[in-house]
Design a protein around this nucleic acid. Sequence first.
DNA 1: TTGATAGTGGTTATATTATAACATATCAAA
DNA 2: TTTGATATGTTATAATATAACCACTATCAA
Lengths: 160, 160
Amino acid sequence: MSIGFEAHNHDACVATGVAQAQAYCAKEGLKMTPTRQRVLEILLRHHRAFGAYDILEELRNDGLGSQPPVVYRALDFLIKHGFAHKLERLNAFVACSHPGQDHAPAFLICNDCGSVAETQTSPEKSQLREAARKAGFTVEATVLEADGTCPLCTTDGSPA
Amino acid sequence: MSIGFEAHNHDACVATGVAQAQAYCAKEGLKMTPTRQRVLEILLRHHRAFGAYDILEELRNDGLGSQPPVVYRALDFLIKHGFAHKLERLNAFVACSHPGQDHAPAFLICNDCGSVAETQTSPEKSQLREAARKAGFTVEATVLEADGTCPLCTTDGSPA
DNA sequence: TTGATAGTGGTTATATTATAACATATCAAA
DNA sequence: TTTGATATGTTATAATATAACCACTATCAA
């Protein structure tokens, strides 16, 4: 369960993810508005890379805004506060698997089935941080992504 | 000199970079065509993140093709054979600083001055590879990028 | 209660990045 | 010299993202 390709109960993912985000927002004085919550739910439900325009289409179906800025603004909020991440390699988005933790996420992205696993790294041990330190470079954010084939697709050629 | 933010002779960069690429192509039976070479020269000369449409504008000035596919095809070739890399965070491109080596590059990207340093990592030691191994995930390619502030911009607020 | 302010959302328009599809050209091998 | 593979030229469009402006709402101070 630690890495994320195993099957699991997405309803629970969605419920706990939304609850955690709501709790965090209440504590920090942030506004979890209907649009933001809906975008988070969409990301949690799919639990895979999801493009901004795919999210937008679902939002539209819910009557919650139909223009790109709506979804990009919601994503900005979710990313800023750690509820979601952008996959730079795919220009797509995923819900955070470890919300509430200050973390340097890394992603394993399956090219076959599109599933995405978020893993934690230890910034103090990373080669990237070490290289930055040596160079006198101040790191603000890191992007750590691997493309490849997930165990399910490796084994039998078909996704979960 | 190991990391890449220091000032250095770009003419030499360009000359040696092109020569190395030509040698590699000759050895491998690849074609270093005028367009491809010109795109490589542009990347080497600027030695920073350079967008596809910025490259295209320079190509146009040289009469070497004026439509997007021209530059994207050249970039595909250069990237495929290790002469250039894409910075996913910026949707931009840089010449490779270590051509001819089979490597897992990592980048330090200065948000102030736009300079980019390419550093080497040891795949066998990386936390991303380790996480992949644990998950049974087969890695095909990795993206390792850090945003932040380079030593020159940290020190005095102005780029080199 | 009013009015100032900040944050959010709606909308139009447009910018930026990238590729599909098809025609033409080049070149080397059969 | 035909063939096949690779490369280039071109048109059109897809996919991703943001600027700019206006309206609404909540909050809070006067």
